[in-house]
Design a protein around this nucleic acid. Structure first.
Lengths: 192, 192
DNA sequence: ACCCGGATGTTAATGCGATTAACATAGGCA
DNA sequence: TGCCTATGTTAATCGCATTAACATCCGGGT
């Protein structure tokens, strides 16, 4: 009668996916273990291999998903009429994404030896679009590529620092973050 | 007669230290293995434990050293009379450090679960000093803490992006990096 | 010059986690 | 109904970290 754990899980893939996100958010991507994810999903250590090529593949899938989520998020945030406003909104969205999807974010930029993923380029294109609009409006004070680099780097830098420890220096209230840090960086010397 | 490898290495600690830097620079901190470092130094896998508490301890030592090196570098770079110039120079020094000490840099910010190291705070203080000089000169357009965050984040973001893959977007010539990216970010909206 | 203790190495075990091969089950479809 | 495939399980194997037990060396005190 009762729920005698069935031989087949039913939705292991998703279960592993979720377990991975939880574990990574809690212990960091470095400490992530396929074994633990499998245990959390209630299956043996070998089961995951039926759904993912291996640990790297699972992490890669999470990274890809993260980039897609980020791209959507940026697209939605950059809808403002005024391109300068869109840029700031996109920046805030980027930071919000990093905060809310800690695990994804961690895995997305945890590449060393791995190929840069196509999804990353897509997310970046959204930013590029905003820059292009600014350029078209004659609002850029520097060449578009430089503006893109500068904007991405500042926002990414903030996101990264907010994660890795050193909160002291980066942990401020949202208003200050927006008006005294992000806004000056993004509109200060890049726009005119 | 000849150099029959002696039972005692003589300077294992340094040998391991150097091997680690080389291996990390080449394969990344994630792929780093105490075993390989030991092999490279020509000793058994257990030998390193006589000089370091373990893998984490070795990496921690490298991180600490890295922060100290960075602090020295920043101090030297921020010597300019004009604080605004000092800030830009410090930023460039930060980027140069990240490029030249890839391994150190990677380990320095590869903390998750580990305590933030005191050496990091020291390096940050150098930056803080420059910000303080700007403040004293009435050149800051935003509160000092915000300026520090903003400056550190933009520079750090650039450094990080230059590493992890996505070179396409961050790999530009030094002049552009300085005049069209870093300078606008650091002086654009933060200073007046 | 000789002896001893601590510093530095070595080898052998233990344990964990990734990955794979061989075997078991469940479900769905001809 | 009966077979085929997808999905799991168990039982190796392998690499790496860490530790315990044993070997060497070096420098100082006698």
């Amino acid at each position: 009668m009762g729920t005698t754990t069935p031989y087949h899980h039913g939705s292991l893939r998703r279960a592993l996916h979720d377990a991975a996100l939880r574990l990574i958010a809690e212990h960091g991507a470095d400490a992530f273990t396929l074994k633990q994810a499998a245990a959390e999903a209630g299956v043996s250590v070998a089961a995951p291999y039926r759904h993912y090529g291996g640990k790297a593949d699972l992490l890669g899938a999470l990274a890809a998903e993260g980039f897609t989520l980020l791209a959507d998020r940026l697209r939605a945030a950059a809808a403002a009429e005024d391109p300068a406003q869109a840029l700031l909104d996109a920046g805030l969205a980027y930071l919000a994404f990093a905060d809310e999807h800690r695990a994804h974010f961690e895995v997305m930029f945890h590449n060393r030896g791995r190929e840069p993923r196509a999804e990353g380029a897509v997310a970046l294109d959204v930013l590029g679009g905003v820059i292009a609009r600014l350029e078209a409006a004659g609002r850029l004070a520097v060449p578009p590529p430089a503006a893109l680099r500068a904007a991405w780097a500042s926002v990414h830098g903030l996101a990264v620092l907010r994660h890795g420890g050193m909160r002291t220096v980066v942990d401020d209230d949202p208003r200050s973050l927006r008006d005294e840090v992000l806004a000056p960086l993004l509109s200060g010397g890049l726009l005119r």
